Computed example of a mutant assay.
Amino acid sequence: MDFNQLKQELFDYCEEINVQKVGIASTDTFDTLKQRLVTQQAFNYQSGFEKGTVEERTTPTKLLPKAQSIISIALAYPSKMKDAPKSKKGDRRGIFARASWGKDYHDVLREKLNLIGEFLEEKVEGAQFKAMVDTGELHDRAVAERAGIGFVGKNCNLITDEYGSWVYLGELITNIPFEPDEPIEEGCGDCNICVDKCPTGALVQGGQLNASRCIAYQTLTKDFLPDEYRTKIGNRIYGCDTCQVVCPKNKGVDFHLHPEMEPDPELAKPKLEPLLTISNREFKEQFGYMSGSWRGKKPIQRNAIIALAHYKEVESVDTLIHLMKKDPRPVIRGTAAWAIGKIGREDAKQVLEKAKLHEQDEDVLVEIDKGLDFLKVHTTT
């Protein structure tokens, strides 16, 4: 079989099914990535969401023993929201990161990869595949970089010439011996804007991320948010786009090529207060198709409370008081108490002191005291 011809047919087919970029990577061990992952482990820079061992994440043949090449694809997603609603006093809104706008990108990419697999199965007898999107063992960005899709920038995102870093990535390990493409040598040069602008210093150096300090990671956690991040989170309720927004390579880049990726403004930038009392069923019905829903409603609600405190939204205090008194989850009760003190309505001191008499959870009591400490500051300044 002429695999060069098949490769061209594959690329043509990818264009037909609306894949923006496709490239081929070799199945050699990702040695540079391996060293970086070892360093991450040594410094405890991992998020805990990574799948597989270092060997599995850097050795494709560990995942498909007869692997001979890796097909890497990229789909461009929007960076700007049309008709975005305004956040205003008495009607404050949060924001989901762009990677959660529209239909869950994992599903969109898997559909494309499945189509590619079916296409090649018709062409090659005995074809084998293993598809991965984000949650697989392989490092999507390292594969895409090797395949010539783009280069990994100092913000740890893959950056393409045409679409900036606003791309979703996926790959298909296969036993078909496609000729690899050439990696792109372009880089960030002297630009260090993303490192300088990271809200928490999570980009410890260009291309090295301390995932546990990243706002995007912190919005996913389910426990109390550490105090140092509460002042940084702003109105983010899922994810963080700062290191992409400030990147010069993304200036003016905004593509709307996939209708299923278009955000519903009321969901991508939702009203905060209704999130505080939404039921599990309502949350799944409204947000379940978005990638930002995968951790459930609890982190979203906690982040929404912090966002209301960020806005000092007095109109929401009655709802926060109800949560502090009635919610069965200590994280929500405690965060609500903290927010009541942060907002500082006239009756806040009385409300918090009364709650302190009835609260049994030690962690919640600590948060009540934090709220009361805010009020002491208010009265002395």
Rank of each mutant, 00 (worst) to 15 (best):
E182R: 12
C214S: 13
E179V: 15
T174F: 11
Q205V: 14
I193F: 00
A211S: 15
E260T: 09
G239D: 04
L225V: 15
G234K: 14
Y229H: 10
L169I: 13
C188K: 04
R230P: 05
I215V: 14
A202V: 08
L203Y: 07
P265D: 00
E179Y: 11
L203V: 06
L225G: 05
L225M: 15
G206N: 10
V195F: 02
G239V: 07
E228H: 14
G189A: 01
P270L: 11
D241R: 07
L275R: 04
T221L: 14
G252I: 06
H256M: 08
Y238G: 01
G189C: 05
V204P: 03
F255D: 03
I215L: 15
L172A: 02
Q205L: 14
C214N: 04
V246Q: 00
L275W: 09
E266V: 05
C198H: 01
K197G: 00
V253I: 15
Q218G: 11
E185W: 03
Y238W: 14
L257R: 06
Q244N: 01
N235M: 06
V245F: 12
T277E: 13
L275A: 05
L209P: 06
N210I: 14
D181S: 10
C243S: 01
I173M: 02
C198L: 10
I173W: 05
K271N: 05
D190V: 13
L209S: 12
P183L: 06
G252V: 09
N210T: 13
F178Y: 05
N210F: 15
L220S: 14
C243R: 02
N175G: 08
L169Q: 08
Q205K: 15
F178E: 02
P274A: 10
V204Q: 05
K197D: 09
L169G: 07
K249G: 00
R230F: 09
P183H: 02
C191Q: 01
F255P: 01
F224A: 11
T219G: 12
L276T: 09
E273S: 12
S212Y: 15
E260R: 10
K197L: 11
K269P: 00
I233Q: 05
M261L: 15
A211K: 11
R213N: 14
G189N: 01
E171Q: 14
F224G: 06
D181M: 04
K232T: 09
I173A: 00
P199R: 12
E182F: 13
P265T: 03
G239L: 00
V246E: 00
A268C: 11
K232H: 12
Q218V: 15
T277N: 13
L209I: 15
C198F: 04
